[in-house]
C-alpha cells in the first residue's frame, strides 16, 4: 500500500535530517537539516490524510507557516552570530559551557 511506503520514505528522510543535525558544524546547513525533518513530517501528514481526511493537509500548511517563521528568526540569529564571530561555526557558541 502506498501509504506505508510514503511513511517509510518519511522515516528515512527524518533520520537523514537527524544525522545531519548531529554531524554538521555549519549553522546554515544545520537549519537546512531541520527543514528536511519538517518536510519528512509533512510527508507523514499527507500520507495519513489519505486515511483520515483533509485535516492532514491543513496541518501541513500550518507547519509550513511555522517553518517559514523559524527560518526567518533562525537566519537572523545566524547573521548576528556571523557579525559577532566572523564565522557560522557552531563550535564558537560555547559561552554557556564554561
Amino acid at each position: 500500500m502506498m501509504i506505508v511506503d510514503a511513511l517509510i520514505v518519511s522515516a528515512i528522510l527524518f533520520s537523514i535530517g537527524v544525522v545531519g543535525v548531529l554531524t554538521r558544524r555549519n549553522a546554515i546547513i544545520l537549519f537546512m537539516c531541520v527543514e528536511l525533518m519538517l518536510n519528512a513530517v509533512n510527508l507523514s501528514f499527507v500520507a495519513f490524510a489519505k486515511l483520515h481526511g483533509v485535516s492532514g493537509h491543513v496541518f501541513v500548511i500550518l507547519v509550513m507557516t511555522i517553518a517559514a517563521a523559524e527560518a526567518a528568526v533562525g537566519l537572523a540569529i545566524v547573521i548576528s552570530v556571523f557579525r559577532h564571530f566572523g564565522a557560522v561555526d557552531l563550535q564558537n557558541l560555547k559561552l554557556l559551557r564554561r
Partner: peptide, 8 residues
C-alpha cells in the same frame, strides 16, 4: 517572527 528577525 518578522519583528524578531528585523530586530536581531
Amino acid at each position: 517572527a518578522v519583528i524578531g528577525a528585523v530586530v536581531l
